[in-house]
Simulated assay, not measured.
Amino acid sequence: MQPDQLVKQIEFIKEIDKIKYIQRKTKLFNSDRNENDAEHSWHLAMMAIVLVQHANVPVDLLKVLKMLLIHDIVEIDAGDTFIYDSQKNHTNTNEERLAAERIFGLLPAEQAAEFIAIWEEFEASQTDEAKFARSMDRLEPLLQNASNNGGTWQEFGVDYAKVYEKKKVINYGSATIWQYAEQLINDSVERGILKKAAL
């Protein structure tokens, strides 16, 4: 390995430390402290290791882990977009694209290209690995909100229809986990911590 490659990699490693400061809207389980992006990414990676047997089809776990550890790094520049934000759509924005190019661009060219490709694959959510990774990303905040008496649902007035719409993509990665998640959503309505809009 060339010394200049190592220098670039160390610069990237130092830069991504900033992800620890990106606060999410969701809070830790049974807590009033907001989760940060680094905690979120670590938790998703652990969830994937534990739950991979429930994927709809066999997946490349290492690729899934890379997606989960990489996918929110762009938020260092772009910030966290709340999944239920009514002003800004939670999609691959131009700000995130610029962030990916800048931050992953700190790496040697071959690694930068790999990381950008992995990030793009997760965002596109078309491959089996991306679908399973996305199911982890949607499951964790659901578990958190259920543990926090509604959490961000209560705080931001998010109703059942919005939650169901955002969470049903879990099914594309794991029908088994979606069955569990759907029951948890319905249980949350029964408990009164997730409201159904009046007809």
Rank of each mutant, 00 (worst) to 15 (best):
Y180G: 03
E110P: 11
V189F: 11
N171L: 06
L142G: 04
N145R: 11
W178D: 04
G192F: 14
P141L: 08
L143R: 05
Q111E: 09
K167R: 14
R191F: 02
F122T: 03
T152Q: 14
L107C: 06
F132W: 04
T152D: 15
I170W: 00
R138W: 00
L184H: 09
V169I: 12
K167P: 02
A124Q: 12
G150D: 08
D137H: 07
N171Y: 10
F104Q: 08
K167Y: 06
D128I: 00
L107E: 11
D159A: 08
G151S: 10
W178C: 13
W119I: 02
K166S: 10
Q183I: 04
R138E: 05
Y180Q: 12
L184M: 15
G150W: 10
N149Y: 12
I118F: 00
L143A: 05
Q111A: 06
A181G: 09
L106I: 09
Q144S: 09
A99V: 08
Q183M: 11
A161D: 07
V189G: 05
E182H: 13
T176D: 08
G157I: 11
L142P: 00
A100R: 06
W119A: 02
F104S: 02
A161E: 05
A175C: 14
K162N: 10
A99S: 15
K131P: 02
Q179A: 15
S188H: 14
A130F: 08
N148P: 08
P141K: 02
Y172C: 04
Y160I: 03
L98A: 09
Q126I: 15
N186Q: 14
R138M: 08
A113Q: 15
S174I: 08
A99G: 02
Q179D: 15
A146S: 14
N186M: 10
E114V: 06
D159F: 09
G105V: 04
Y172P: 01
S125P: 01
L107G: 07
N171M: 13
K131N: 07
F104L: 03
N186R: 11
E140V: 07
R134D: 03
Y160W: 09
R138D: 00
G150A: 13
G151L: 12
W153D: 07
I118Q: 00
Q144H: 14
L139R: 00
E155C: 10
Y160G: 00
E155Q: 15
A100W: 01
F115W: 08
N171C: 12
S125H: 11
Q144W: 09
R134C: 04
S135P: 02
E129C: 07
N186C: 04
A124D: 09
E190L: 11
W153M: 13
W153L: 13
F104W: 00
L143D: 01
